Computed example of a mutant assay.
Amino acid sequence: MKRLVPRLLLAPAVVSLLAWMLVPLAMTVYFSLVHYNLLMPGRHLFTGLQNYRYFMSDPAFGTSLVNTLELLGSVIAITVVLGIALAQLVHEPFPGRPVVRLMLIAPFFVMPAASALLWKYMMMNPIYGVLAQISLALGFKPVDWLTELPLLSIIIIVSWEWLPFAFLIFMTALQSLDQEQMEAARMDGANALQRFWFLTFPHLKRSISMVVMIELIFLISVFAEIFTTTGGGPGNASSNLAYLIFKQALVNFDVGMASAGALLAVVLANVVALFAIRAIGKNLD
């Protein structure tokens, strides 16, 4: 009886958690198997796997899939490389280091929609944006970033948002680095590159693994930055799977096809995570 009482007390929380997780998933699976359009909410005609076939045959699907993978790979590479570089620069003490650390971390607390608006109107505007003024000052023609380089613009915005996270993780990891080993290597004649490659980089492998895993989970669903800046365009040049699902659900009012796309995105996320876990898990042993 004593063992049963704690389980009974936990049962409502467990049941609520399972319902919160399983009910939306079950409804998504159901809607993906029926023809459900918001303009005709009373008709739920069973279509089997047609929604999946139609979603994958959409001309925008291939482009959105490639853009999603490019966005994932580019942002992770940029944040890891620059995060390590910034952490190395800030690791050594200098006047004003706390202020510099705070300024480097601050962008992580800006909402995605707000940061997208900041970059759209203050940085990348081809007339009065900061980048346009820099180009004019250097004698170059300003670039209309969101029109000419839409996917690169999204990558820059998202990288700016997630760089502080990577920097914070790497900066914390460097604080636990054995300074006696670094001093011994310096006395033995090892240069800065050798000390980084043989001491610092192996020490950061676990942190790199954690950054890659967390960013993989969150970046596959990037939406606000695309919706606020390019709207997935021009055409589908900057659309990803999350934005394509949005267009099917709230632009075409096709809940069935959007649900099928959502489940395909879940499968893609699990496949990517599986390969990432297998590749990165060795560093966590």
Rank of each mutant, 00 (worst) to 15 (best):
I127Y: 00
N191Y: 04
L168Y: 05
T200Y: 10
F165Y: 14
D188A: 08
F140H: 00
L163A: 03
R186Q: 15
W197F: 07
E183R: 15
P150H: 04
S209P: 01
V130H: 05
L152D: 08
N191L: 07
K205L: 13
Q194Y: 03
E180S: 12
F170A: 11
F198K: 14
T147Q: 11
R195G: 13
I169E: 11
F140Y: 04
R206Q: 14
Y128K: 05
L146E: 00
M187Q: 13
E215P: 11
L151D: 02
L138M: 11
F201P: 05
M213D: 06
M124A: 04
W197M: 12
L163F: 03
Q179T: 15
F198P: 09
V212L: 12
M187I: 15
D144N: 12
G189S: 12
V211H: 11
V130S: 10
R195P: 11
E180V: 09
V158D: 05
S176W: 01
R195F: 04
P150Q: 02
P202Y: 09
I157V: 12
N191D: 14
H203D: 04
K141Y: 07
E180N: 14
L163W: 05
W160G: 06
D188V: 07
F167G: 03
K205A: 07
I155E: 03
F196N: 13
W145H: 05
E161P: 02
T147L: 11
I214Y: 15
L199S: 09
L163H: 02
R206P: 08
F196W: 11
M124V: 00
P126I: 01
I208D: 06
S135G: 03
L152P: 04
W145F: 07
I208H: 00
F196Y: 13
F201H: 10
F165M: 11
M187D: 12
I156G: 08
M187V: 15
P126L: 01
R186T: 15
I134Q: 01
L138I: 06
I156W: 03
A173W: 06
Q194D: 10
V143A: 01
I157P: 04
L199R: 05
F170S: 06
R206I: 15
I169M: 14
A190K: 10
Q181Y: 00
E161R: 10
G189V: 12
A166V: 13
S135I: 02
R195K: 14
